[in-house]
Amino acid sequence: MPYALREALAAFRRAPMLTGLSVAMIALSLLVVGLFGLAAFNIRAVIARLEARVEVIAFLRDNANFAEVTRAKIELEKLPVVRSVTYISREQALEIARRELGELREVFGTLEGNPLPASLEITLEPNQSGPEVATSVAQHAGRFDFVEEVQYGREWLEKIYLLRRVAGAATLILGAAFALVAALIIGAAVRIAIFARRDEISIMRLVGATDGFIRRPFLIEGLFSGLLGAALALLLTWTAYRLLSDSLFQLEWVPDLWAVALFALGGVLGSLASVAAVRRHLREIS
């Protein structure tokens, strides 16, 4: 086994308390990143579900010609941002109203005629439901003569859109801040490990070991601690997810790629922090 790998493993054996402490520190700081990622993912999922429900509804005049409406339906369906267009006849509208508004069934039951208009319900593609897209589709639909009015909940839509942008920015900024804090904590843990082995390092220097040779075991040790800490952080995040899901509210688990990214983040932060700390120590002792 090469010297660097052997020494890195020996460090775990020689000072299990110290390495355990670094792994725990890494795990806890990455746990914050993990929990934050879980929250960010679920907020995004909720927003996506809300957005999927965005519909543009074009109410039709009573005298609308069915052939024209069908042509309009086909035309609207050809728009790339539109997922589907459904024609709801006046009778269907009344049926839906009776079903959905149970407490008013009496009212609908006693009506002599049908007061509800026919409509075209336009569902947008999932990623195309921003306010601009909905407005342009609504304007397109409004240009047909037989369309009396178009509704699409503009204000509501703009609020969701704003929420999504704020959540996106918060994910980026807070995620980067938490990762930075994790890196600083890992750096501190490595400094402790280096301090514990400062005699060894100064003797390595004394007898002519190159700086690269001195750095290597710490690099590997940092990588191992980082990966181990990240694995622990993932396990803790998953436990928190299970506990929350079982007791408070139903959450979705993050995609595998996010979990892999956290694992990789642990390894990268662990090795970078190690290299930086050893480099600094070697400069200090000249």
Partner: peptide
């Protein structure tokens, strides 16, 4: 070669390992 008043040996390694260390870290 460099020797000091305070010896500067690694306390957790045997005499042989202290000497071997100088060779080990140079490959």
């Amino acid at each position: 070669g460099y020797v000091f008043q305070d010896f500067r040996l690694l306390q957790n390694r045997t005499a042989a390992d202290n000497v071997g260390f100088a060779l080990e870290v140079t490959g």
